[in-house]
């Protein structure tokens, strides 16, 4: 189990959701939100590949945020 925090000022909530959807076959996640960040408590279904899966998920969320024109 690990927690990923995506700053609300830098990531769009929809983009984080989309990333999670795209990686649903590779991770299970609990979503929560604080005033500052979108938080994902992740468990990788393939622990040996955790580093890569988390990295790709982060890239996905960032790319979708940028493609949407930013976080807000």
């Amino acid at each position: 189990m690990m927690t990923l925090r995506f700053s609300r000022a830098l990531y769009a909530g929809e983009a984080v959701d989309e990333a999670l959807g795209a990686f649903a076959h590779l991770v299970t996640a609990e979503r929560s939100a604080t005033a500052e960040a979108w938080e994902l408590r992740l468990t990788c279904l393939y622990p040996a590949h955790t580093r890569r899966i988390v990295g790709e998920l982060g890239n996905y969320a960032l790319a979708r945020t940028i493609e949407r024109g930013g976080a807000l």
Binding site: S7, A9, L10, E56, G58, N59, L62, I66
Partner: peptide, 22 residues
């Protein structure tokens, strides 16, 4: 500015895993 940070980050996502924080 943030659009520049986004722009540079986007160029690197095929080479690295990129995370942004404040």
């Amino acid at each position: 500015p943030l659009p520049a940070i986004y722009g540079a980050s986007y160029v690197f996502i095929d080479r690295c895993f990129v995370f942004l924080e404040r």
